[in-house]
């Protein structure tokens, strides 16, 4: 009975049936929102009163919105500090862990711990560490006879501080990725280098680094995507200050939408920002793949 049915309806039917859930999901939660946001772009709307057609005025406003460009710039600043820091630290730890040592698993899971813990916890915790007057870090600096640093209370330091915190949180993941990459490097390459009399630095520079190129691309793209959605850290820690130095693009979009009720405008900002994200990732891919 069953086999007759399945033969009658065939693979095509079953395949369509089985992928139907995705099609339904896609149309409601991906296609519709994108389409809707495209409509919103041309409207002024505070969700509670009717929409109002404004044509391209949201874009005109966007291009004269200095704060938004500041927010994009801040997000890029974050990336410029965060990505190299992340790669260097992760690479160092991964190379360390890749030696023949005991407790490798233990160290690896230790470094990985912040990755799994919610960003909220990390931010509440680091708010205590970063405090200027009573924070743990400044207390330590004082103990060593150094000066206190206004980690999150000065426009110059605030974004780098958030980038350090984000690195601390995510680096464990990239350590693991690099470890996988390191273990995939064939041993004979090093043996050959030994015969040629290469030192450890040369081996690292001429064998390890080139072999990790793919992982490097991956780490860069992953942290770029993560960095562009920077939100909860400044939201809880600084509210975007001091002097808008930690106002990330996502935080600004959130504020426009949910503090000030400019749904149409924030959809425009979101759309514009998403284009920038795509552009940056495409450029990254192009540049790195060419190497």
């Amino acid at each position: 009975m069953k086999s007759i049915m399945s033969r009658m309806k065939g693979e095509g039917f079953t395949g369509g049936l089985m992928s139907l859930p995705y099609i339904v999901y896609f149309s409601f939660f991906i296609a519709f929102p994108i389409g809707f946001s495209f409509i919103l772009i041309f409207h002024k709307w505070n969700i509670i009163t009717p929409m109002e057609w404004v044509g391209l005025r949201n874009f005109i406003r966007l291009f004269s919105d200095a704060q938004f460009f500041k927010a994009i710039l801040n997000t890029l600043t974050f990336l410029v500090i965060h990505i190299p820091l992340q790669i260097i630290v992760a690479l160092l730890l991964a190379v360390g862990l890749n030696q023949k040592i005991r407790f490798r698993g233990f160290f690896r899971s230790l470094y990985f711990m912040p990755v799994i813990v919610s960003g909220v916890v990390i931010t509440i915790m680091w708010r205590q560490l970063y405090g200027y007057e009573t924070g743990l870090l400044n207390m330590m600096l004082l103990q060593f006879g150094l000066d206190k640093i206004p980690w999150i209370n000065h426009p110059t330091y605030a974004m780098p501080s958030i980038a350090i915190m984000a690195t601390w949180k995510n680096v464990g993941l990239y350590v693991v990725l690099f470890l996988v990459g390191l273990q995939n490097i064939p041993g004979f390459l090093y043996e050959a280098a030994n015969i040629d009399g290469a030192g450890p630095v040369q081996k690292f520079w001429y064998i390890t680094l080139p072999a990790l190129n793919n992982t490097m691309v991956l780490v860069m793209i992953l942290s770029t995507i993560g960095g562009f959605s920077l939100f909860i850290e400044p939201f809880v820690m600084t509210g975007g200050g001091p002097m808008n130095s930690t106002l990330s693009a996502m935080l600004y979009i959130y504020n426009q939408a949910f503090y000030f009720g400019h749904m149409g405008y924030s959809a425009t900002l979101g759309f514009f920002f998403a284009c920038i994200v795509l552009l940056v990732i495409l450029i990254q891919k192009k540049v790195v793949e060419r190497d």
Binding site: G15, G16, S19, P33, F36, S37, L40, S266, G270
Partner: peptide, 27 residues
């Protein structure tokens, strides 16, 4: 399974993975 539109669905899935959630949040 082989069925009509399989490659299309696959392409769509890959494409949606690069769409930043920022666009869809408010809608």
């Amino acid at each position: 399974l082989k069925f009509l539109g399989r490659e299309l669905i696959l392409a769509v899935i890959l494409f949606t993975m690069v769409i930043p959630f920022q666009i869809t949040l408010i809608p």
